[in-house]
Write a protein that binds this DNA or RNA. Structure first.
Lengths: 241, 241
DNA sequence: CGTGCCAGGTGCCCT
DNA sequence: AGGGCACTTGGCACG
């Protein structure tokens, strides 16, 4: 199930990788230099690093710190293994946009591989969708008397999370953020409100930002624009998901 | 330099991880279940997976596909190792925001570790900063006769990449994007232009979006708003970085 | 396949 | 520590 080679020859390592690269996750500890070129470009000098490949084409070069790889190609890339003298060479091509990663491994300390699956039904709880779902099920989470007219209402300037109506008959644009609302979210809401106002002359239009919190600067914009904020907590929505 | 254990006992694996967790990268192949809770929540049932820890506190649970870990905690988190019967337990705490990852490893196929450094002077070429640098060095990249007045000009609605003046004395707001410009970039530029117009009544104010390309919808907004687009290619700027 | 947008985004720089 | 923003953003759903 788990296969590995310690201090393999270049030839053995090449064979190992060739055998498993399209069906398994492969982990390589090695003395590595690497380059990336495409939309941008970067270069890494020789140093011990960790290489990971996955059967979907993922290629990552990890260093000793940080969560993200320092150089990578995403799923859908194609991996080629070859030998250049004493150096094991991995080349990865991403096709759209065109991006190249070349890894030269001067010394392989270990290469290992195991078949690893994918959690098909993986689900994160507490996403924006969950919040919108909860509001759809219980509109009063926005405010008393709120009625939903439409979800994901498409406009020329983007799609509105929820378009509704308050108890006085005003149109209400609701923008939902799953976390701390940023100024960008306020600008977004303002755009929607202006669009709806333009489409419904003479009718009252309000904008409500629903989020777990809001930054001070975002709150300032919000007030300047005459928009409103409604805080929710996980506890508010958990009963409706 | 490289250390590893094959099919270790829980006790040995625990010792191994405890010994290296604050100084080295550790890779574990194992039969794993995991939970995450914090701003959101998620759960993984027992399955073979790949665990990686780094001395800066990074903890990642990788599956057989995708570039990103399915569950993780970022740098700055703290890792605790313990044993629960026959199960190796990794608990990770991120402090701000408070988030918990718990990994239960029912079978360790292999645990390995190596000291890996960090490329201190790592530099990506072709970022937005590079483009702005190039314009600062050669303002005519924006247009003939363009003069820079200020970089990162701070306004109430965000910071303007470059504020300048054209040969006719109009103020020019320049927004730089390193890739394909999205509608969001156009809205951003529009905000800045409106702000500058408000601050400089009676003065001509233009807005120019500088990017390698622009999406069709973004271009429509741009034209609607009376803004301008200036394409650049990597070749344009490479001489000035 | 591009287009749009959320994400537990992460990382970087600044206050 | 928190704010603001770029990112080779990645990932997903949808036209």
């Amino acid at each position: 199930m788990l296969d590995h080679l310690l201090n393999p020859t270049v030839k053995d390592a090449t064979q190992f990788i060739g055998r498993y690269k399209s069906s398994r996750v492969i982990v390589i500890y090695g003395q590595v230099e690497a380059t990336y070129s495409g939309r941008a470009a970067a270069q890494l000098r020789l140093m011990p690093r960790l290489i990971i490949t996955k059967p979907d084409g993922v290629l990552m070069v990890h260093e000793g710190y940080r969560e993200k790889p320092v150089i990578w190609n995403p799923p859908g890339s194609q991996l080629f293994v070859s030998v250049d003298g004493d150096v094991l060479v991995l080349r990865s091509i991403r096709y759209s946009p065109r991006e190249y990663v070349t890894i030269r491994i001067h010394k392989v300390y270990m290469v290992s591989s195991m078949e690893i699956g994918l959690t098909e039904d993986f689900k994160v709880i507490g996403t924006e969708k969950d919040v919108v779902d909860a509001i759809m099920a219980n509109p009063s989470l926005v405010e008393d008397g709120f009625k939903v007219l439409s979800r994901e209402y498409e406009t020329m300037v983007g799609s509105i999370d929820i378009l509704g109506e308050d108890k006085l008959g005003n149109l209400v644009v609701v923008e939902v953020k799953r976390g701390e609302a940023s100024p960008e979210a306020v600008h977004q809401l303002k755009r929607y409100v202006e669009y709806i106002k333009g489409k419904n002359p003479g009718r009252g239009v309000r904008g409500i930002l629903v989020a777990t919190g809001i930054s001070t600067s975002a709150y300032r914009y919000l007030k300047d624009y005459g928009l409103e904020f409604r805080r929710y907590t996980h506890a508010n929505i958990i009963n409706y998901t």
